[in-house]
Amino acid sequence: MRFRTRSRHIIDLAFPIALFFVFAVSSLSILILAADIYASTASHLRINDENRTALSYIAEKIRQNDTNGAVSITSIDGIDCLAMSALYNEIPCTTYIYEYGGMMKELFINDGIPVSLKSGRDIMAISSLSMEQLEEQLWRFTTVDSDGNEDFLIAAGRSVP
């Protein structure tokens, strides 16, 4: 008895290999696409976080220091600074929040000591932070994130000296 088998063609070899490579290439390209999508999502979230966190931080600081008209805007070395005065152990001190060298910084210093903006503690990265007094005890804060998006927040103080 002779077994009946079909004759061998090159396609029997080539087709599975070709299909495998097509599958490999397409699945790898989908993987690269997925990685790009993840990177894009993470980047957008991080950038959105910059302005949101900076402006929320400023708003919270103002609310936590709104006593005796302590909150004001001042300019030091040409840089807008949010100044909040308070008494700590009977010593008058001021907290300054400002942008310096691409970073939002906070400096807590006794009144009367010369202010060096470089010495502030880094809070977070921000491209720019500008402040504008709209009316008495009403300010607009504008931040620009690393992607160039501008956002603003208006804050008011309610206390007076």
Binding site: I30, A34, Y38
Partner: peptide, 25 residues
């Protein structure tokens, strides 16, 4: 088995990216 190995690797990576995206968001 090489096809299956490749498929498992790719699916694991894509699932990881998807999970990280959702988790972060």
């Amino acid at each position: 088995g090489s096809v299956s190995l490749l498929m498992i690797f790719i699916v694991l990576c894509i699932s990881m990216f998807a999970a990280l995206s959702v988790s972060g968001a």
